[in-house]
């Protein structure tokens, strides 16, 4: 199934990606940000705060925003 994935770490592009049915928020996070800790990100599904075990649905929009972003 396809979801909209937004990673605001780095360039912050929004991409439609294919994920397996039954993929949870934590599983997707581990796949996409393998070196990161979930606690270091604000995770939203369809603009709402999401639990780690929330199962993603077709057409969902998920965003990872780092808690710490350095200004200059």
């Amino acid at each position: 199934m396809k979801i909209l994935y937004i990673n605001n770490d780095g360039a912050g592009f929004a991409d439609h990606i294919e994920v397996e049915t039954g993929t949870t928020v934590s599983k997707l996070f581990a796949q996409r940000v393998p070196t990161g800790k979930a606690g270091d990100y604000l995770i939203r599904v369809n603009r709402q705060p999401a639990a780690a075990d929330q199962v993603l649905q077709e057409g969902d929009r998920i965003s990872f925003t780092p808690v710490k972003i350095e200004g200059a």
Partner: peptide, 22 residues
């Protein structure tokens, strides 16, 4: 700083929630 590009992309995509969160 590091927020420059994600802010720009959030705005261009109309992701206002992301923009203000960043």
């Amino acid at each position: 700083g590091d927020a420059t590009v994600p802010l720009q992309n959030a705005l261009w995509d109309g992701r206002f929630v992301d923009f203000f969160l960043i």
